[in-house]
Amino acid sequence: MNGDDLIDAVSMVDDDLIEEAAEYKKEGKGHIVLIVSAFAASAAAIAVVNNLPGYTTDPHDFEVDNSVQTVVTTEASTAETSDTGDDIPYISSGIGTAPFTEPETEKSSSASYPVTNEVTEAAQIESPSKTAAPPSPSPSAENVRTEADPVTEPHVITEAPATEKIVTEATHPEESQTLPPRPVPSPDPPVTVPERPTPLPTPMPETTVTVPERPTLSPDPVLPVNRENNTFDHATLSGKAYSKKCVYTFDESILNEKTLNAFFESVVENTGVMAPVKTASEVSSEEMFLLKCGSADGQYYVFLNDSLSAEEEDKIFKTLGITEFN
């Protein structure tokens, strides 16, 4: 027994264990995607809030902003969790994350409108307790103070909740649409927006691709297509129909190295078979492909696209130097 045997044996371990290892990846990536998309959703929500028609630049409104952000983030996370179950994760490359953010962002933006309004109202109710402390240019805040208790202003802020209630009620008229225009506070107090971490995409594990020295593989003479009784004369490649025309021995140098998979249809057995086929460098695969024939070097069946005219077929034969048909 050697390492190769063990590796081969590991390849044959139970499917559920392999699935588990593959799924584990999915979960792992899912969490990362979740965090990134949550950040994206919050960013989108903030952008929406900032652009709302009634949105004011009052510095205290930033409190409102944060509440909205929290609500939307939670929604986005929930939606995401239910989504992750279906997709296959990719493994190396974090593939599948890109299409994910777009609908989420959309969803969270639209959802943010009602939430924003509610929270804004709520925040306006709460605002006096916060606005009273710093010197506020807001006339509403001044009104509140004078009406409630101009003498004991500090007490209103720090002590009894009952006083606070009075203050809260006093602010209600402020919510009506016919508010007196607020004087624009000339020098805005410096507003520090809490820095949000920029969501960075998780780095893909990089695989260094080396240019290979490619030894030629020996051609596999056993192919699933039965070539003896002409039952597989018709084939499909990329949705196009082809038919077998002739056998020809090609100079291998004109053949492309890359193989494609074509489907061969048996007219006798009514079955389909897939087999690897080659293409020639001088003719497009939309017009022609070649199927290995027997074990002789360079011998191939020539399949041409059914839509080609007789002239076009002749042109291809001439290009390839095919003069005799087998």
Binding site: L6, V10, S11, V13, E20, Y24, K25
Partner: peptide, 13 residues
Amino acid sequence: KEKRVVFLRRYFF
């Protein structure tokens, strides 16, 4: 599970 995953990620994947 964690150890199984580590093992298979290394020697299967």
